[in-house]
Amino acid sequence: MAERACQRCKYISYDKKCPICDSETSSDWSGLIVVTDPDNSKLAEELNITMPGRYALKVNK
């Protein structure tokens, strides 16, 4: 099954609804950032990511 990214928070999962914010997910996404420690990451801060996990950089609807 293809991985999907949330259209709002960009979190990557296999579900049709995002497990974090319950928004719709899309299978058309690109770029990846894996955040392991959001408190000490400048990249996570720039992207407003507060939870560890895998996120897409761009999600198309």
């Binding site: 770029g31 894996v34 392991t36 000490n40 990249l43």
Partner: peptide, 17 residues
Amino acid sequence: ISAILAPESMQGYIFVE
């Protein structure tokens, strides 16, 4: 390591914070 970045436009490289 706090984050790993794999941009689509950068082939053959990843970035690590």
